[in-house]
Nucleic acid binder design. Structure first.
Lengths: 342, 342
DNA sequence: AATTCGCCTGTAAACGATATCATTGCAGCC
DNA sequence: GGCTGCAATGATATCGTTTACAGGCGAATT
């Protein structure tokens, strides 16, 4: 593989001039530049980015740490980052942490090892925050969605509490009083917030939260299916199920159908996330749209700011949500109870 | 940030010894090693991987180029790669090509520029093959799923033709004769193969392919929805729809429901891919399972072999598929026509 | 005691770029 | 003609590692 010296020789100039020609901005006479371009073309030369990075002390990579990738939520988040990153000349290194603190730390080390310039942590699970650095240069890290309340880093999220409360409002306006919930894992902030939102919505409507049937899931399709089975088995009365994720709502739809219950005639079901597939479920899902891709974009914007000025004061961005009403919710039946028919 | 020289000074040895201590294999006296470890700990030292890479001429990154990431197929493919890559000490750089040949080329340049050691191209779209290299060292590239028939690179795929034919066989055994198809884009090999499989299955059953209602989609949810609308509007008779992807099948289910048609009572529907969500659709989808994650793993295995010995002869791996029968298919109605009722 | 052998360690030359500083050539000016 | 000033270029140090080569030193062998 040709290097800058070969080019310099072939073009009859010094390596410094070649380097200058490479970095567009510098002043090189057009004739000289042409000779260099020809040499580059001829030898099919590509600058060695490791060498360049070593000298310039940057890699142009940014790491995006996500808990997993088989989640549609993750995909769109990363897509949002990718879009801005490419424009800004950064490459995206996708890191899958499985919410493992050790792995996350190892990625922080990558930026210490100059393999990457910054780290964006999407955590939908536990707020496994990278150690605060006591060091000289602050490590450029942006947190997304899930983070300890006392973090001092730049961060972005949406308001899970209000968004979930808005869904409950919607059900209440439709006349529902007996509302069941399937929550995410409450040891995780996102799960907890969505549950808090549910409770908040119930209280605002003057309903008794303590009596609401609640099942605990982990946001997955399967959890929605199983939790619904559990709710049905308990025999509590409810006319609506408020799920903490679209995937769980889709699992719920499947289980309700097996039980012979019609959605929304017998039971209303709501989701959370507005995944693409939710518009095509049967029936199409009422849910709350959180701008997933927008979250990625916001995170990347924060990162770019941080890279431009590492000393910058950390900021928090909270993105707006939007209720999306589709066909999985309908006015509550007069009778007031619907379950137990299993 | 501390460097190897600082460690050497603090530990009272030469940088060479530190380097040796770092690369586990070499021989360093235990006492010396301990002193070095202490120094590393104290200064919180992380080796600069750019420098290391520059010297050793490798980056330990491998690029995975995928057409997009918002597709569940992609996610699981990447997951398969990740698993093996981490074990082998490689980092995965996810590159989103949008099936853009230019972008793909730019990633090939990254490996020329020593930013990455190898490239895995997942293409579900067009066989946008990296230019064959006329150069000294062959560029380590593995192709997955979609590639020109005459490629000389290592590659992995499953047998789309036989898999689709197997689905048709299943429908035929249930007594279906009027089978509609919603295909992928036929200018793409994957779309074409699945269509060929459909035709093969029909011919094997002695059915007239020319009469089968066929709509063309692009594998997406939305395409499934619209293509089904189109089939219904045309008024052709059919008792089953054979979709070239699970997402399209889910779109089809949504549209059929709107038309008041019951699945599988009025129409049977089949998918392709066995996405996770397909087990929870209403009704659960009959489909063909292709080992998506296994494809990623196979690709990474080929890559590891290639990195170990770049001169190795290219190989082709073809992965097995499996019919998954769920509730979206049932014996054909006696009447023989079901559409047109729109 | 001299030689050989192994282990451990140090010296210094890469790796391939960028950036600083010095130099050259040439135009413009008095 | 000698001076300044500017634009273009060159020589070279530098980034932080790895590694080939060359000792040094003690133990084992003769």
């Amino acid at each position: 593989m040709a290097n800058i010296k070969d080019i310099a020789e072939l073009a009859g100039v010094s390596i410094a001039t070649v380097s200058r020609a490479l970095s567009q901005s510098a002043s090189v006479r057009p004739a000289t530049r042409r000779k260099i371009d020809e040499a580059i073309e001829k030898l099919n030369y590509r600058p060695n980015m490791l060498a360049s990075g070593l000298r310039r002390q940057r890699s142009n990579n940014i790491i995006v740490a996500v808990p997993n990738i088989s989640n549609p939520f993750t995909s769109r988040f990363v897509q949002g980052i990718e879009n801005l990153a490419r424009e800004a000349g950064y490459r995206v290194l996708l890191a899958i942490t499985e919410s493992d603190q050790m792995l996350l730390d190892s990625y922080v080390k990558m930026i210490a090892g100059k393999q990457a310039d910054g780290l964006i942590v999407l955590d939908t699970v536990q707020p496994c925050s990278p150690r605060e650095d006591s060091e000289d240069t602050p490590t450029p890290i942006v947190l997304a969605c899930e983070y300890p309340p006392d973090t001092t880093r730049s961060r972005v999220r949406h308001d899970n509490v209000e968004a979930m409360a808005a869904i409950v409002d919607h059900l209440v306006r439709l006349g529902h009083q007996k509302i069941a919930a399937i929550t995410g894992p409450i040891e995780q902030r996102m799960g907890l917030d969505r549950l808090s939102g549910f409770k908040l919505g119930m209280r605002r409507a003057g309903l008794d939260v303590a009596q609401a049937p609640i099942a605990y899931g982990d946001f997955s399709l399967d959890a929605g299916y199983r939790s619904t089975a559990e709710l049905l088995a308990r025999g509590d009365a409810f006319t609506a199920i408020c799920c903490a994720s679209d995937e769980m709502a889709i699992g719920a739809l499947a289980r309700l159908r097996e039980a012979g219950l019609k959605v929304p005639d017998d039971v209303s079901v709501t989701g959370f996330d507005n995944l693409r597939v939710s518009a095509f479920s049967i029936p199409p899902l009422t849910t709350v749209d959180v701008p997933i891709q927008g979250t990625g974009e916001a995170a990347m914007r924060l990162m770019l700011d941080l890279l431009r000025d590492p000393e910058e004061a950390p900021r928090e961005v909270i993105l707006p949500h939007k209720l999306v009403v589709r066909e999985s919710t309908a006015p509550a039946k007069k009778t007031g109870r619907a379950a137990a028919s299993k």
